[in-house]
Design a protein around this nucleic acid. Structure first.
Ligand SMILES: Nc1ncnc2c1ncn2[C@@H]1O[C@H](COP(=O)(O)OP(=O)(O)OP(=O)(O)O)[C@@H](O)[C@H]1O
Length: 790
DNA sequence: ACATCTGGCCGCTAA
DNA sequence: GGCCAGATGT
């Protein structure tokens, strides 16, 4: 491999980082400075120039998609051998190691992975079994998760919280223990366990630790600013001997504190690796000067002793366009119109355009408009494919096949579709399990089909499964038992050498159960598909069935053959027909899939999901002070700083054009608020922005002003205000001119008496936050709202 | 004993 | 808009 490929297109600092030989390396650099490019080239350099085997490299990215891309890019530089590299997220890498080593921790290697929703369900079950209110499951679950990600024992964590006067329910300890116990007996691991269990494994088994330290001669991590303590510990474990650790990141882009990410991991990297070489990158290759200046003016709000000056030799570029719109519908329309304009001018392809927002709920309005206008789009993140109900149901069916100990998955689908196994029946089955010492519900189901009656005493009464429930169980089990019949049958066929995979009913030629065949068998035999078609709204059903066929497509084991070979370390001693199924499930639970539209599409995503990406044209919606910064963040410790970083991330995704939209009025969570533009817009120097208002906003406002001259006279001075488009011709403060100020007591026709706590006036509006005695805090437009001074 | 429907409650960001 | 508990219907 000629080396100029590896080192061309790099500046001197980048080159230094790429060709750094051994020992710890930290690339600490701002947005768009080529950190990811350095990582990709460095990996290629290690392989092509230093003769490191791809198999000895572990590269960690933030998302699966980023991993995919990195693999492709390295593949383009060094050829197909890149395929054997481990490039994945922390979670995927841990899951992969645990597939072979779970036994050392007392798990089966075909353990199932629980996502957050599963964990919450299990937590809820835990709480109910302890006689507690199941509605608090979310809070318990997030405490447990938080502790694990902070690399703390949840029991210790709870004590610490109580010591610092935080409220932790007294039953937390019991609930946590029981949760762990249930999880263990299901042979399941939650997302956080994937990380913790690896750290634990490396602690209890020096042999395993050494094995992986030796295997991964080079460890590289992207987006290090968003690692949490347990991930940091894992990196230290792996790299502390050979110290070939390269991490890259930008402290100003740390936006996952809610997931326990800790900026200290990157800022204090030196503490763990004292001989680290630190290479800063200061040239930005992505954005125009204007965009870069805007980003800097936002991030400068933070205290950043580590700050470096990021520069570009690119052009000034276009000004940022800030559009004031009337409400969220108007906002969507306006963004749609601008996208149309870009298309009409053939300025960019749809693929070059992205729209970001603070919360997932904001995408809906835009999706409707884009669909109506036939502008293709894809939502990145959001309700993920693998989080949809029908997909989770289908995977639960496979989970039970893969690991029948998994009561959580079993319970999910035992009565889905309904087959007469209701709450009462489930209670009987569970009680029976406990009393007779069965390991899992699946065994109880099997037992129920023998002659023995399933009888238990509940509340002093003898109860047994109803005939209907029994029949339902039978049908349910038949779907599974018939799979084992088919396996037996196929195995006998496999004895004969002329058997082809075509004549097999469920196995593939390697003797693995084909996930696709198994899944479609289960969905048909259990009448899941049939009942889905019949139930509810036909449009939803059609998409659900479409989703399921997509899942089935992904479960085609052709796609897994390659993986089955790559994962040679998965090869167990005993024959395991489930290998392909296990692998499929493993991939599914950790995947962030999203389909592509040919002909291009606009990308819609949260600001969080935008990290690491870049687009020539970027829209940021909802630039309002009631939304971004997110109000709750303002009260959290360091919350506002993190919002600044989030804005910084969003702005720096843009290459050439950046648009902000902010709505005067927004209905979110069924509550209507009146908003002022985000303070973030205010941080950006005026010379970088052009402001305009949507037509809808203009027309709504002028019709209100007309009405106001009739009805609005209750407010002192409002008459003068409406007659003279205030703010343009006056040096008198607007606040004076409506005759109200912060601290004034007012009365509202509906909300009663209150006091103004915040007031912002411009030429069109007077947005006030009023603390009402009875109704709490509300934000209103005083130029419109029925408010009088008292 | 189950299934289905309705109204109240709650809502950020995510592997 | 989605989830859940409780009421109502079979
Ligand atoms: N030396 C270079 N010459 C030209 N273009 C470069 C150079 N280095 C990087 N780039 C380009 O700059 C852009 C940003 O690079 P990259 O995504 O690697 O930056 P980053 O530091 O990871 O950004 P961020 O942290 O904002 O995600 C990419 O389009 C990349 O191709």
């Amino acid at each position: 491999m000629p080396s100029h490929n590896l080192t061309s297109g790099l500046n001197q600092s980048q080159l230094d980082a790429v060709t750094h030989q051994t020992g710890p390396l930290l690339v600490l650099a701002g947005a768009g400075s080529g950190k990811t490019r350095v990582l990709t080239h460095r990996i290629s350099y290690l392989i092509a120039e230093l003769g490191i085997s791809p198999y000895q490299i572990l590269a960690i990215t933030f998302t699966k998609k980023a991993a995919q891309e990195m693999k492709e890019r390295v593949g383009a530089l060094v050829g197909p051998r890149a395929q054997t590299m481990w490039v994945s997220t922390f979670h995927s890498a841990c899951a992969r190691i645990l597939r072979t080593k779970a036994g050392l921790l007392g798990y089966d290697s075909n353990y199932n992975i629980y996502d957050q929703a599963d964990s919450k369900t299990l937590t809820k079950e835990t709480l109910l079994s302890l006689g507690l209110d199941g509605r608090n499951a979310g809070m318990y679950q997030s405490l447990i998760s938080r502790a694990k990600n902070e690399d703390k024992d949840p029991l210790v964590f709870a004590e610490e919280l109580r010591d610092s006067n935080s409220l932790v329910p007294p039953q937390f300890e019991d609930a946590y223990r029981r949760y762990e116990q249930l999880k263990r007996s299901n042979n399941g691991m939650d997302f956080d366990d994937l990380l913790c269990n690896i750290v634990k494994l490396f602690e209890i088994s020096e042999e395993t630790l050494i094995e992986y330290q030796n295997k991964f001669q080079h460890v590289l991590v992207d987006e290090y600013q968003d690692t949490n303590p347990v991930q940091n510990k894992l990196i230290i474990q792996l790299a502390k001997e050979h110290r070939n650790i390269c991490v890259v990141g930008d402290p100003d882009q740390s936006i996952y504190a809610f997931r326990a990410a800790d900026i200290k991991n990157i800022l204090q990297f030196e503490n763990n690796f004292p001989d680290v070489t630190v290479i800063p990158l200061e040239q930005n290759y992505r954005s125009t000067q204007i965009i870069l200046d805007a980003a800097n003016s936002v991030i400068e709000q933070n205290h950043r002793p580590y700050a470096k000056n990021l520069w570009t030799d690119g052009e000034m570029g276009d000004q940022i366009s800030s559009i004031q719109v009337f409400d969220e519908k108007d906002e969507a329309e306006e963004v749609g119109r601008e996208i149309r304009k870009i298309q009409d001018l053939q300025k960019y392809a749809l693929d070059d355009i992205a729209v970001f927002y603070r919360t997932n709920a904001q995408s809906r309005a835009l999706e409707e408009v884009l669909t109506r206008n036939k502008i293709h789009y894809k939502v990145i993140g959001g309700l993920r494919f693998y989080e949809r109900k029908e997909i989770k149901d289908a995977l639960a069916y496979l989970n039970v096949l893969n690991n029948p100990q998994d009561d959580l998955s079993l319970e999910r689908i035992l009565n889905e579709p309904t087959r007469g196994i209701g709450k009462g029946a489930r209670e009987i089955l569970k009680k029976y399990k406990e009393e007779k010492g069965f390991n899992n519900l699946y065994e109880v189901l099997l037992q129920s089909q023998s002659n023995e009656n399933i009888k238990v005493e509940i509340g002093g009464k003898e109860k047994q499964l109803s005939a209907g429930a029994l029949k339902g169980v039978k049908k349910f089990l038949k779907a599974y038992l018939s799979i084992f019949e088919m396996v037996k049958h196929d195995l006998s066929l496999l004895q004969s050498p002329e058997t082809t995979s075509k004549s097999l009913s469920i196995l593939n030629e390697h003797g693995y159960i084909c996930p696709q065949r198994a899944l479609s068998h289960l969905l048909i035999e259990t009448e899941y598909l049939e009942s889905l078609e019949k139930s509810g709204d036909p449009i939803t059903n059609a998409t659900r069935i479409e989703n399921l066929s997509e899942l089935l497509g992904a479960a085609d084991d052709d796609q897994y053959k390659q993986d089955l070979n790559v994962h040679e370390e998965l090869s167990d001693v005993e024959p395991n027909h489930m290998k392909a199924v296990t692998l499929f499930l493993n991939n599914s639970s950790l995947t962030d899939s999203s389909e592509d539209h040919e002909g291009g599409s606009v990308s819609l995503m949260t600001l969080h999901s935008s990290k690491g990406l870049e687009y020539p044209s970027v829209f940021i919606m909802g630039m309002e002070d009631e939304l971004f910064p997110f109000p709750r963040a303002i009260f959290e410790d360091g919350g506002l700083d993190e919002e600044h970083r989030l804005a910084y991330v969003g702005i720096t995704r843009a290459e050439n054009n950046l648009y902000f939209t902010h709505a005067h009025k927004r209905t979110l969570h069924g509550q209507t608020t009146y908003n002022i533009p985000s303070r973030f817009i205010g941080y950006i120097p005026e010379r970088l922005i052009t402001h305009r208002k949507s037509r809808k906003f203009e027309s709504e406002m002028s019709s209100r002003m007309n009405q106001r001259s009739n009805f609005g006279s209750r407010l002192g001075g409002v008459q003068a205000w409406s007659n003279s488009k205030l703010g343009e011709d006056s040096d008198k403060s607007n606040v004076d001119q409506i005759g109200l100020k912060v601290g004034d007591n007012v009365n509202h026709d509906m909300f009663g008496d209150g006091v103004i706590v915040k007031l912002e006036v411009n030429e069109y509006e007077a947005i006030a936050t009023i603390n009402f005695a009875d109704e709490g805090q509300k934000t209103l437009d005083l130029s419109w709202a029925p408010v009088t001074k008292i």
